[in-house]
Computed example of a mutant assay.
Amino acid sequence: MPKKVDHEERRRHIAEVVLRIAGRDGLDQAKLRDVAAEAGMSLGSVQHYFGSKDEMLRYVVRYLGERVTERILAGMGEAGERPVRAFLLSMAAEVLPLDARRRAERRAGQAFEARAVAAPELIGDLREGDRWLHGRVAELIAQGVRDGELRPGLDPGREAVVLLALLEGLASALVVGVREPAEALAVVRYHLDRLTVLY
Rank of each mutant, 00 (worst) to 15 (best):
Gly51Lys: 02
Leu88Gly: 02
His48Gly: 08
Val68Ser: 01
Lys53Asp: 08
Ser52Phe: 00
Ala93His: 09
Arg62His: 09
Met91Gln: 09
Ala108Val: 05
Arg131Gln: 12
Leu96Met: 04
Ser42Leu: 09
Gln110Tyr: 13
Ala37Glu: 13
Ala93Ser: 13
Glu121Asn: 14
Arg62Thr: 08
Tyr63Phe: 10
Asp125Trp: 12
Phe112Asn: 08
Ala79Glu: 13
Pro120Val: 15
Val46Gln: 06
Lys53Gln: 08
Arg67Tyr: 07
Ala92Ile: 06
Arg58Pro: 09
Arg71Glu: 09
Gln110Ser: 15
Tyr49Val: 05
Leu43Phe: 12
Arg103Asp: 14
Gly129Lys: 10
Pro120Asn: 15
Gly109Thr: 01
Glu81Ala: 15
Val46Asp: 05
Asp54Ile: 07
Ser90Val: 08
Leu43Val: 14
His48Arg: 14
Phe112Thr: 05
Val95Gly: 03
Tyr59Glu: 00
Val68Trp: 03
Gly77Leu: 06
Asp130Tyr: 11
Glu113Ala: 15
Ile72Phe: 07
Leu43Glu: 14
Leu73His: 11
Ala93Phe: 09
Leu88Met: 07
Gly40Tyr: 10
Ala116Tyr: 01
Ala111His: 10
Gly75Gln: 02
Val95Phe: 12
Val61Gly: 01
Leu43Arg: 12
Ala108Glu: 05
Ala92Gln: 06
Arg131Met: 09
Val61Thr: 01
Gly80Met: 06
Ala37Tyr: 12
Ser52Asn: 06
Gln47Ala: 09
Pro83Cys: 06
Leu57Val: 01
Gly44Tyr: 03
Ser45Leu: 10
Phe87Ala: 07
Arg58Phe: 05
Ser52Met: 08
Ala118His: 14
Arg82His: 05
Glu81Trp: 13
Gly75Glu: 02
Leu96Val: 05
Gln110Arg: 15
Met76Tyr: 12
Glu66Cys: 00
Ala74Glu: 12
Thr69Asn: 14
Asp125Glu: 13
Leu122Arg: 03
Leu88Gln: 03
Gly109Tyr: 04
Gln47Lys: 03
Tyr49Ala: 07
Ala114Phe: 07
Ala37Pro: 09
Val95Ile: 11
Leu89Gly: 00
Glu128His: 13
Pro83Ile: 01
Gly75Val: 05
Gly40Arg: 06
Tyr49Asp: 04
Gly75His: 04
Glu113Met: 15
Ala74Ser: 09
Val68Asn: 01
Val60Gly: 07
Glu55Ala: 12
Val68Asp: 05
Ser42Asp: 11
Ala104Pro: 04
Pro97Tyr: 07
Ala111Asn: 11
Leu73Val: 12
Val61Phe: 00
Ser45Gln: 08
Leu98Cys: 04
Asp54Thr: 07
Ala114Trp: 10
Thr69Leu: 13
Gly75Pro: 11
Gly124Met: 09
Ala74Thr: 07
Leu57Glu: 04
